[in-house]
Amino acid sequence: MGTIAGAAAVSSACRSSREAVRPRGLPASAPATVTIVRAAAYDQSLYATVRRVLESHRLNVRGRSVVLKPNLVEFEPGSSINTNPLLVHAAFEAFRGMGAASVRIAEGPGHRRDTLDLADAAGYFKIVPGFEDNFVDLNVDEASRVYPRRQFSRLEKFYLPNTVLGADLLVSMAKMKTHHWTGATLSMKNLFGVVPSGIYGWPKNVLHWAGINECIADLHAAFPRQFAMVDGIIGMQGNGPIQGTAKNAGVLVAGSDPVAVDATCCRVMHIDPLRVGYLRIAAGTDDRLDGRNIIQAGEPIETVATPFELIPQTRSYRLEKS
């Protein structure tokens, strides 16, 4: 079990490798690039698509440790709650092919205690060979006390899993979903899953009491070395993140800046990113959410944008002009 000293050691270790994971040749202040690619279905073509997207971002993961964080919440047959396991396996294979020293899949579901049973029901054992050997249940992982560099909620500290704190690159593989409290749940909200339920409980209710939007921004600040890939092939609309209905959007959205990726996803969903609380907090300035300040690669937003249904409580989030 880690301690404050342990956390410092982990944090220090991470800092030393940060530049190596950044896209080659880009200064730290460069505008974020977000890639949108069409993907019609969860099929074998995803493997080449994902590899192409990752290579286009010139991530240097050779010899580095990569943690893939899917969104694994609950399982209902025929539902679109969770990140599809085929997409996660495609990323797993792509990072290994790009020379990563280790690639692990990690998640800490917030409602169900038996994480592996949930992963099995969601198809991960079937799709990912040797899944259990490559998976970390973040709910009961060794944890360290962390004081994020930027703090937006009233929580003064977090206990976070060492597997994620120690990763050279955390890849948030979220599902593109509406959310009945925050408007949308994408790569940033997906980081709620790294908060260990073994410490905070099922659900991680402390985060709600401390402010959902603020805690999302806290967690974003706690993990500076991220890549985001959002599964919008089949997303969820309506009363997300669990009880909504499937929405075929047919896209993957990816990039090294989760704020820019999520803002782009919002536009794809016809949701106004400026109305999503955690995006405004994390961005710091509305300019950063402005589509003109995000370098768009792949498909133009307007060619893939499709309105996700919103429940009455979240209709104020609707983007009035795409």
Partner: peptide, 13 residues
């Protein structure tokens, strides 16, 4: 009972 202090009560705890 809550899982941790300063949070709501839930079924498990």
């Amino acid at each position: 009972w809550p899982w941790v202090p300063r949070a709501a009560a839930w079924v498990g705890p």
